[in-house]
């Protein structure tokens, strides 16, 4: 279980997260929706500790973090291993081959045996249909391929939760489908996922739970049926805006 209690994060002139209380169940896909600047990415990045809120409690696995206190480096690294992050613009390591990109974490962070790590990486490459790219460098791949590799890189750490920060928004619609197929596959395999997206169709198909954020606050938290079939006035306006 991943849990946030009374989490607050503010930038100089902007309250990004305002008293956030959320549960993310294991083996479920939670989709974070909301207009731009709502705090979705800040929330997701806080779960990987790339952002550190000023207040609130964060519980994951055996770890409990009080954001109002200093977090030790050791605990940060442990929590990051539990939460695999996939970025909007994939951020692969350009100087490493595809195989090295995927095995870098397992070998040097998890101290896994190199041969075993490579074997696992090949399984992941099979999962995303990119085995033949293993010896290439990232800039020899298309955006969609790179994003699928970045999913493999995060999965290779065997995280409890996969965090996706708008994984398809930098891709053409045609290529977007390749990445969405991988996400659908993971959802079917009951991988715990938290996904920030603007893709309503994806949310409709795979979300077990939807959280709608606005101005750093939770405006809605519930099932996709409630969200799409019984929307509040504000959500209806958002859904209409997205369709336009």
């Amino acid at each position: 279980m991943l849990k946030l209690e009374h989490v607050d994060k503010a930038y100089a002139d902007h309250h990004a997260l305002n008293d956030i209380n959320l549960d993310f169940k294991e083996h479920e896909t939670t989709v974070l929706l909301g207009p731009s600047g709502a705090g979705k990415s800040t929330l997701l990045r806080s779960l990987n500790l790339l952002e550190e809120p000023e207040k609130g409690i964060y519980k994951i696995g055996d770890h409990t973090i009080d954001f109002s206190k200093d977090i030790s480096n050791k605990e940060k690294l442990q929590i990051r291993q539990l939460t695999g992050m996939v970025f909007q613009s994939w951020n692969l390591f350009p100087h490493l081959t595809i195989l090295q990109n995927i095995t870098e974490g397992p070998i040097h962070v998890l101290k896994q045996d190199k041969i075993a790590a490579q074997k696992d990486a090949m399984h992941l490459l099979e999962l995303v249909g990119l085995v033949e790219t293993k010896d290439r460098f990232p800039n020899q791949l298309s955006g969609g391929q790179q994003q699928r590799i970045s999913i493999c890189r995060a999965l290779a750490m065997k995280p409890e939760y996969m965090l996706f920060d708008e994984p398809t928004s930098a891709l053409d619609p045609e290529i977007e489908a390749q990445v969405l197929r991988v996400l659908l596959k993971l959802a079917k395999e009951k991988q715990s996922m938290i996904v920030v997206t603007h893709n309503l169709e994806f949310a409709r198909r795979v979300a077990d739970k939807i959280v709608f954020l606005e101005n750093g606050q939770i405006e809605f938290e519930g099932t996709k049926d409630e969200f799409f079939n019984h929307p509040t006035e504000r959500i209806q306006a958002f859904l209409t805006g997205m369709k336009l």
Partner: peptide, 15 residues
């Protein structure tokens, strides 16, 4: 983003 991607997989600062 390269620093972030490396930190995100649990690497330490020297790594």
């Amino acid at each position: 983003s390269q620093w972030e991607a490396a930190y995100a997989i649990g690497m330490s600062y020297p790594q």
